[in-house]
Amino acid sequence: MFKELLNKINPSKLSRSFHTTTCLNEVRLLTRLRVVDNSEIGKRAMAEGKPPKVICVYNKQRVGYIGDRVMVAIKGQKKKGILVGLKQTQKVRVPKFDSNNVVLIDDNGTPLGNRIHVPIPTILRTILKERTHSKGADYTKLLAIATKFV
């Protein structure tokens, strides 16, 4: 059976498909993320095998970058989070992780857990400081609960 296949199909004539780009690993709508802090909801969701899915990326392009705020759906609830590590190829000197990591926060920017057990890129410090306004939410609180910077 395989010999027939080998004889029939010529590899050069195999391709009759559209051109597609390489796998970009972007974080957009309905992307599954990995919760990286020790909040109750997060731990339970990851343990059950139902990771949070992105419902909204707060960005003009609707594609997440490190430090972007996202709305995720966990265990039937809507929670906000901040992207803390991406699988996407990054610029030089910015670390790239093996999974898309998110830290859950509430509307004021206070994280729901009290420890992040995974390393965090240092570029977050600058990005979150820029995003924080005096009267709005303070996003830099999650830097306080981080254990390691990469």
Binding site: V94, K96, F97, D98, P119
Partner: peptide, 8 residues
């Protein structure tokens, strides 16, 4: 910390 990291 059980997280794979790559830097260019």
């Amino acid at each position: 910390d059980h997280q794979g990291v790559e830097v260019r």
